[in-house]
Amino acid sequence: MAFRQLVRRFATQAPNISGPSATAGDHGGMKLWRNLSFLIAIPGIAVCWINAFVVNEQEEIGPEFVPYEHLRRRTSTFPWGDGNHTLFHNPHINPLPTGYEHHD
Protein backbone atom coordinates (compact mmCIF):
# COMPACT_ATOMS: atom_id res chain seq x y z
CA MET A 1 0.00 0.00 0.00
CA ALA A 2 2.87 2.41 0.72
CA PHE A 3 4.35 1.83 -2.74
CA ARG A 4 1.07 2.84 -4.42
CA GLN A 5 0.92 6.04 -2.40
CA LEU A 6 4.51 6.85 -3.35
CA VAL A 7 3.82 6.25 -7.04
CA ARG A 8 0.64 8.35 -6.88
CA ARG A 9 2.50 11.20 -5.20
CA PHE A 10 5.19 11.31 -7.88
CA ALA A 11 2.66 10.91 -10.68
CA THR A 12 0.54 13.86 -9.55
CA GLN A 13 3.32 16.35 -8.77
CA ALA A 14 4.88 18.29 -11.63
CA PRO A 15 8.67 18.23 -11.52
CA ASN A 16 10.47 21.52 -10.95
CA ILE A 17 13.09 21.35 -13.72
CA SER A 18 13.68 25.07 -14.10
CA GLY A 19 15.17 25.59 -10.67
CA PRO A 20 14.01 27.60 -7.70
CA SER A 21 14.72 31.05 -9.14
CA ALA A 22 12.67 30.74 -12.35
CA THR A 23 9.17 30.70 -10.87
CA ALA A 24 6.18 32.65 -12.14
CA GLY A 25 6.51 36.35 -11.35
CA ASP A 26 10.21 36.09 -10.48
CA HIS A 27 12.76 37.40 -12.97
CA GLY A 28 15.71 35.55 -11.42
CA GLY A 29 15.83 33.00 -14.23
CA MET A 30 15.80 35.70 -16.88
CA LYS A 31 18.66 37.52 -15.17
CA LEU A 32 20.62 34.29 -14.88
CA TRP A 33 20.33 33.46 -18.60
CA ARG A 34 21.03 37.07 -19.63
CA ASN A 35 24.22 37.07 -17.54
CA LEU A 36 25.26 33.67 -18.90
CA SER A 37 24.72 34.93 -22.44
CA PHE A 38 26.82 38.04 -21.94
CA LEU A 39 29.57 36.48 -19.82
CA ILE A 40 29.98 33.05 -21.43
CA ALA A 41 28.24 32.76 -24.82
CA ILE A 42 29.37 35.99 -26.47
CA PRO A 43 33.05 35.68 -25.41
CA GLY A 44 32.94 32.02 -26.46
CA ILE A 45 31.71 32.95 -29.93
CA ALA A 46 34.43 35.61 -30.17
CA VAL A 47 37.15 33.11 -29.25
CA CYS A 48 35.84 30.62 -31.83
CA TRP A 49 35.78 33.34 -34.49
CA ILE A 50 39.36 34.34 -33.73
CA ASN A 51 40.45 30.70 -33.91
CA ALA A 52 38.66 30.08 -37.19
CA PHE A 53 39.63 33.19 -39.13
CA VAL A 54 42.76 34.70 -37.61
CA VAL A 55 44.82 31.77 -36.33
CA ASN A 56 44.05 29.44 -39.24
CA GLU A 57 45.10 32.04 -41.83
CA GLN A 58 48.61 31.85 -40.46
CA GLU A 59 48.76 28.08 -41.03
CA GLU A 60 49.29 27.92 -44.79
CA ILE A 61 51.31 24.71 -44.84
CA GLY A 62 49.07 21.65 -44.89
CA PRO A 63 49.89 18.16 -43.68
CA GLU A 64 52.50 16.16 -45.55
CA PHE A 65 51.06 13.90 -48.25
CA VAL A 66 51.59 10.17 -47.68
CA PRO A 67 50.32 7.95 -50.54
CA TYR A 68 48.58 5.22 -48.55
CA GLU A 69 47.00 2.56 -50.75
CA HIS A 70 43.71 2.41 -48.81
CA LEU A 71 43.01 6.16 -49.06
CA ARG A 72 41.70 8.10 -52.09
CA ARG A 73 40.95 4.89 -53.97
CA ARG A 74 39.18 5.53 -57.30
CA THR A 75 37.40 2.44 -58.64
CA SER A 76 35.38 4.58 -61.07
CA THR A 77 35.47 8.21 -62.09
CA PHE A 78 33.18 10.84 -60.64
CA PRO A 79 30.36 11.92 -63.01
CA TRP A 80 31.41 15.60 -62.90
CA GLY A 81 34.45 17.56 -63.99
CA ASP A 82 37.49 15.54 -64.94
CA GLY A 83 36.30 12.57 -62.84
CA ASN A 84 39.15 12.77 -60.34
CA HIS A 85 38.00 15.65 -58.13
CA THR A 86 35.32 15.15 -55.48
CA LEU A 87 32.16 17.28 -55.61
CA PHE A 88 33.34 19.76 -52.95
CA HIS A 89 37.05 19.59 -53.77
CA ASN A 90 39.35 22.13 -52.16
CA PRO A 91 42.85 22.07 -53.70
CA HIS A 92 44.44 23.41 -50.51
CA ILE A 93 42.96 20.77 -48.19
CA ASN A 94 41.88 17.73 -50.24
CA PRO A 95 44.65 15.79 -51.99
CA LEU A 96 44.19 13.76 -55.15
CA PRO A 97 45.49 10.16 -55.33
CA THR A 98 48.78 11.53 -56.67
CA GLY A 99 49.16 14.32 -54.09
CA TYR A 100 48.19 17.93 -53.50
CA GLU A 101 47.56 20.31 -56.38
CA HIS A 102 50.00 23.20 -56.38
CA HIS A 103 48.42 26.39 -57.70
CA ASP A 104 50.84 29.19 -56.90
Rank of each mutant, 00 (worst) to 15 (best):
F3H: 03
R4H: 05
Q5W: 05
V7G: 03
R8E: 10
R8W: 02
R8L: 10
T12A: 11
A14I: 04
I17W: 03
S18F: 08
G19I: 14
P20H: 01
T23I: 10
T23W: 08
T23K: 13
A24V: 00
G25H: 05
D26I: 09
D26E: 09
H27M: 11
H27A: 13
G28H: 09
G29N: 00
K31G: 09
K31L: 14
L32M: 14
W33D: 08
W33Y: 13
W33S: 14
N35D: 15
N35A: 15
L36K: 08
I40S: 03
A41P: 04
G44D: 07
G44Y: 09
I45H: 02
V47E: 03
V47P: 01
C48F: 10
I50H: 07
A52F: 03
A52D: 04
F53G: 10
V54L: 14
V55Y: 10
V55E: 07
V55F: 10
N56K: 09
E57I: 02
E57K: 09
E60D: 09
I61S: 01
P63Q: 12
P63S: 12
P63A: 13
E64A: 08
V66A: 03
V66E: 12
V66D: 06
P67E: 08
E69H: 11
H70M: 14
H70E: 14
L71Y: 08
R73M: 11
T75S: 13
T77K: 07
T77W: 07
T77C: 04
F78H: 02
P79E: 14
W80Y: 15
G81P: 04
G81A: 08
N84R: 04
L87G: 01
F88R: 02
N90T: 12
N90H: 13
N94M: 06
N94S: 10
P95Q: 09
P97W: 02
T98C: 01
T98G: 00
